[in-house]
Design a protein around this nucleic acid. Structure first.
Lengths: 195, 195
DNA sequence: CGATTCTTTGAAAACAGTCAATCTGTGTGG
DNA sequence: CCACACAGATTGACTGTTTTCAAAGAATCG
């Protein structure tokens, strides 16, 4: 069931032979998390990549004052990993947990990279995802550095409305780098302006 | 002279045969820019990648109020391109110009990618640079979203002091997403605390 | 219901931005 | 060698936005 989802996803995005597809699917393991359960805890070195088939994961950092800062969400058909920890080989500064009951497929990153190297279409797909991700991230930097709270909210509405529809507002605020109170005020003001 | 710099750089970072090295060097063209001259202007589609051999380039966006927001600097031995415009194929929202008299080698991105695909060590190098860049960028997002102006400055001191040593403070401020006045006040206060 | 969890609202405080003036250093032309 | 212009940096007073803290109001779930 989970593997069928990944298979459908890969089928839609890359041209793979039956053999290649099986190789890839074979490398993944199923995993389920209930709401609030962890995939990764701070202090561990992360060597896994997850493909979400159901639910939603979040990647976040906790600062000195115990405030959470969400870096990324991952819904169905999205990939999630702590790339920073993987790249640096250092223990992770991040947590990954499920914000809904979720199902995912897990693969060791080294294994996955090897697959990407030997199976061209998979490598190309990953390359292209990285590029798209880069654009998202760059937009995010721009927003964080130069937008007001209100502009950040508008940008989210424009480019990632699915987040707003799916995630508690307190987490949206954390993702935007503002407080929940500020987000709440912006929204109520935006509503008033509509009328 | 410029090509020797690139050659030395590649030699240090990747194992390339003489033939491969020549292929790569051959794809690049020399270019010089005086201070304030443009490599890329907003509204164009960018298809080039630059390897800086001397001086310093900056990539920046200009907002509705004509305020500049610097996304990235590139000193000697750094790469610079407007990846967003390349990935999306849309006209660029960014400018690239020289903030010192600079020299660089230019290559068409498609050509360069093709080289990376056929010359494994080059592809691997680029992959690894992307990964490192990813970590930098992620740190930048964290800083932008959750740090005070002072913390951002401290982070820059720790992780990218070369920027501080090289670039006018007004540009440092723009890179940090704060005003030059605020940066100035932070610095004078930091000095006072030292005594 | 009762108990979390999530969201909203209000008032005060902190932080950074804006505007305007001044200061500093560097280089150029007389 | 001086004077002036210019770019960059600093300072002060004021304004505005966002955070903080505290409390209360919805919504959801067993």
């Amino acid at each position: 069931m989970m593997k069928e989802k990944l298979s459908a996803y890969l089928h839609a995005k890359a041209r793979l032979s039956e053999d290649e597809m099986n190789q890839i699917l074979h490398a993944f393991q199923e995993k389920k998390l209930r709401k609030h359960q962890y995939l990764l805890q701070e202090g561990n070195v992360s060597k896994q990549i997850a493909f979400v088939t159901k639910g939603c994961l979040r990647l976040y950092r906790v600062d000195e004052k115990d405030v959470e800062h969400i870096v990324q969400f991952a819904f169905e058909d999205w990939w999630m990993s702590d790339r920073e920890s993987y790249v640096t080989g250092m223990p992770s500064n991040y947590h990954i947990d499920a914000i809904e009951d979720s199902e995912m497929l897990i693969c060791d990153i080294d294994t996955f990279n090897r697959l990407g190297k030997f199976i061209q279409p998979l490598g190309d797909l990953m390359q292209s995802l990285q590029s798209k991700n880069f654009v998202t991230v760059q937009r995010r930097i721009n927003a964080a550095l130069s937008y007001t709270a209100e502009q950040k909210y508008q940008e989210l509405l424009t480019y990632q409305p699915e987040i707003l529809q799916r995630v508690p507002l307190a987490m949206v605020a954390s993702y935007l780098g503002i407080t929940r109170e500020t987000l709440s005020r912006i929204r109520s003001q935006a509503n008033r302006n509509l009328k």
